[in-house]
Design a protein around this nucleic acid. Structure first.
Length: 504
RNA sequence: GACCCCGUAGCUCAGGGGUAGAGCAUUUGACUUUUAAUCAAAGGGUCGCAGGUUCAAAUCCUGCCGGGGUCACCA
C-alpha cells in the first residue's frame, strides 16, 4: 500500500499534530462530557435566563475561525446545528496559544457561559478548551453568510457530485441539506416500523443468500458458497420467503429488505436498493389499498408535518383517499383506445403510431407494458392506484374475482414513478405451478428475467396459505418523493460507484 | 452497452497553441465582541492518464480512466 503524496496543507497539519503532542496535548483523547447540544442552547437561551447557561459544555467540529490576535471567534458544528464560540487569551491562558495550531475540521470540547455578542449572536464564552480530534485533511467548508432577511447565502459550496458520493462523510460535514435528507430517510423507516408494529405485524428476517431466486423479474448477482460448493444468489426479492412464513402460521409479517439486481444504474436504479414487503393473512388487495393510503398519509404527516409536498414543481397531496383507476381504463384515457384483448400486431401498430421504438418480436404483454410506462405513467403525478393488471404480467397475483384475464393487483404511482406494488396473493398451488411453468418456458426462450420454478415454495402453497394480501414499497423512491431528491443517489449514503483507477 | 457534455490549487471556477490564473482555504505579521472579519505579505499545480501533431500542448488529435446527461434493461 503506497501512501499518497501529501499537499502542503496536509503536511502542515501533521507538523501541528507533532507540535501539539510535544507540548503534551493528546490530540485523540477518550471522551468528553457535554451538557448541551448547539441547538439546545440556541433554542433555549434568552437574555432573561442566562443564569441557566453559566456553565455549559459543548463539543463539535470547527467549521470557521476568525482570529483577532488575543481573542478569536469560531463556529463549531455538532449533529444538530452550529454555534459561535468566543475565545479570549485572558480566560484561557496557555491553551489559547496552542489554539494557533487548531484548524478548521478539528473537533473540540468547550466549557463556559453563554452570552449575546453586541451584534446579537448567541455565543459561548469559552473558559476551557480541549482538543478532541485533530483533523489531518483540509475540509471543503464553504463560506456562509446570513443576510439581513435571515437567508443563508453559501459561497462556493462543495458541489462536485462525484466527490460528494465517493466521500460522503465530507458531504455530510459540509452540506447540512444532505444530513437532513438522511435524517428524513431514517425517520421514514422508523415511522413505518412503528405503524406496522402498532398493528401487531411482525418484523422478520429472511435469507439474503438464496439457492433459488424469485419473487420478481430480474437478473441476480451470483456468488459461491465454498463449503457447500454451490452457487447462491443475492436476493432480488424476499416475497417467496415471507409467504412461507404466512403458511407457517404468522398472520402479518414484514421485512425491510436490501435487494440486489444485476441491472443498469441510473437516477431511479441502484444495484442494491431497499424495499419493504408486508403480507397480511385473510386480507385482499382492496384492504391493502386502504392500508397503503393510510400508511403513506401517516408517514408524510410524521415526516413533513403536512400531507402536501412539492416534487418537481408539482404539489403532491398524500391526503387519503388516493385516486383509483383500472389499468385498461387508464390506457383508454391516455392512448385513446381500448387496449384490452388486442393482438400483438395491433399493439405494435399502436406503439409505433405513438412514436415508441419497439422490437417487432416483443410479446404482446411487453408492448402493452411499454405503452403503459411511456404514455400513461408520466401522467400519474398525484398518488394513483392503478388496479387490475393483465394476468400475464403478474405471475404471483391471484386471478380477479370477476374480471377474466385480469389479476387482483395494484401499483401505486406518484410523480410518474412506481412506489408500490401489491396483490391479492395467489394461493392456489395448481394455478401458481402453471404460472411459474409459463415463466420457465419464457426463460427457456431466452428471457433472462423470467422466474425460476421454486418447488419448495409450491410445496408450501400445497400445505396451504390463507387468503393473503401482500405489498411492496420502494423505500428509496419513497424517500426521494418525501425529500424532493431528484436521483436515487441522493437518498443512498453510499451509492454504487465504479471504483477509481487501481493506481490509487 | 450507444451517443453528447465535463475533468485546471484543498473547494468553487476562469483561461482554450507561447513563463499556470482568481476568490475562498492555507502560511507569516498586526488586531481582546468578530461573523463571507479586516489590513499587509507569502507559499501552494504530474491542468484525469497515456500516446501523437508542433520549434512550442492545460489548449489541437487519438485511445484509456472517472463523472454527469440522454437512450436501452429494470423497481
Amino acid at each position: 500500500m503506497s501512501e499518497q503524496i501529501k499537499n502542503d496543507q496536509e503536511l502542515r497539519r501533521e507538523e501541528e499534530l507533532k507540535l501539539l503532542e510535544s507540548e503534551s496535548i493528546n490530540p485523540y483523547p477518550y471522551s468528553f462530557d457535554k451538557t448541551h447540544s448547539t441547538l439546545d442552547i440556541l433554542n433555549e437561551y434568552t437574555d432573561d435566563n442566562a443564569d441557566k447557561f453559566k456553565n455549559v459544555s459543548l463539543a463539535g467540529r470547527i467549521v470557521a475561525i476568525r482570529r483577532m490576535g488575543k481573542a478569536s471567534f469560531c463556529h463549531i458544528m455538532d449533529e444538530v446545528g452550529r454555534i459561535q464560540i468566543y475565545l479570549k487569551k485572558d480566560d484561557l491562558g496557555e491553551i489559547y496559544d496552542k489554539f494557533r495550531l487548531f484548524d478548521i475540521g478539528d473537533i473540540i470540547g468547550v466549557r463556559g457561559y453563554v452570552f449575546r455578542t453586541k451584534t446579537g449572536e448567541i455565543t459561548l464564552h469559552t473558559q476551557s478548551l480541549l482538543l478532541l480530534c485533530k483533523s489531518l485533511k483540509p475540509l471543503p467548508v464553504p463560506k456562509v453568510e446570513i443576510d439581513e432577511a435571515g437567508n443563508k447565502i453559501v459561497y462556493d459550496a462543495f458541489a462536485d457530485v462525484e466527490l460528494r458520493y465517493r466521500k460522503r462523510y465530507l458531504d455530510l460535514i459540509v452540506n447540512p441539506d444532505t444530513r437532513e435528507i438522511f435524517k428524513k430517510r431514517s425517520k421514514l423507516i422508523t415511522s413505518m416500523r412503528r405503524y406496522f408494529d402498532s398493528h401487531g405485524w411482525l418484523e422478520v428476517e429472511t435469507p439474503i443468500l438464496q439457492p433459488i431466486y424469485g419473487g420478481a423479474n430480474a437478473r441476480p448477482f451470483i456468488t459461491h458458497h465454498n463449503a457447500l460448493d454451490i452457487d447462491l444468489y443475492l436476493r432480488i426479492a424476499d416475497e417467496l420467503y415471507l409467504k412461507r412464513l404466512i403458511v407457517g402460521g404468522f398472520e402479518g409479517v414484514y421485512e425491510i429488505s436490501k435487494n440486489f439486481r444485476n441491472e443498469g444504474m441510473d437516477k431511479m436504479h441502484n444495484p442494491e436498493f431497499t424495499s419493504m414487503e408486508i403480507y397480511v393473512a385473510y386480507k385482499d388487495y382492496i384492504w391493502m389499498m386502504e392500508m397503503t393510503e393510510d400508511l403513506l398519509e401517516t408517514l408524510c404527516l410524521e415526516i413533513n408535518q403536512t400531507t402536501e409536498i412539492e416534487y418537481n414543481e408539482h404539489k403532491i397531496s398524500f391526503k387519503k383517499p388516493f385516486r383509483r383507476a383500472k389499468y385498461y381504463d387508464l390506457c383508454k384515457e391516455y392512448v385513446g383506445r381500448n387496449l384490452k384483448d388486442l393482438s400483438q400486431k395491433e399493439l405494435l401498430q399502436i406503439a409505433r403510431s405513438n412514436n415508441l421504438e419497439i422490437d417487432p418480436y416483443s410479446s404482446a404483454m411487453k408492448i402493452l407494458d411499454e405503452i403503459f410506462s411511456e404514455i400513461v405513467q408520466p401522467n400519474l403525478i398525484q398518488p394513483t392506484f392503478v388496479i387490475d393488471y393483465p394476468l400475464e404480467m403478474s405471475p404471483l397475483a391471484k386471478k380477479h374475482r370477476t374480471e377474466p384475464g385480469l389479476v387482483e393487483r395494484f401499483e401505486l404511482f406518484v410523480c410518474g414513478f412506481e412506489l408500490a406494488n401489491a396483490f391479492s396473493e395467489l394461493n392456489d398451488p395448481r394455478d401458481q405451478r402453471k404460472r411459474l411453468e409459463e415463466q420457465a418456458l419464457q426463460r427457456a426462450a431466452g428471457d433472462e428475467e423470467a422466474m425460476v420454478v421454486d418447488e419448495d415454495f409450491l410445496y408450501a402453497l400445497e400445505v396451504g396459505m390463507p387468503p393473503t394480501a401482500g405489498l411492496g414499497i420502494g423505500i428509496d423512491r419513497l424517500t426521494m418523493v418525501m425529500t424532493g431528491a431528484k436521483t436515487i443517489r441522493d437518498v443512498l449514503f453510499f451509492p454504487h460507484m465504479r471504483p477509481e483507477s487501481k493506481s490509487k
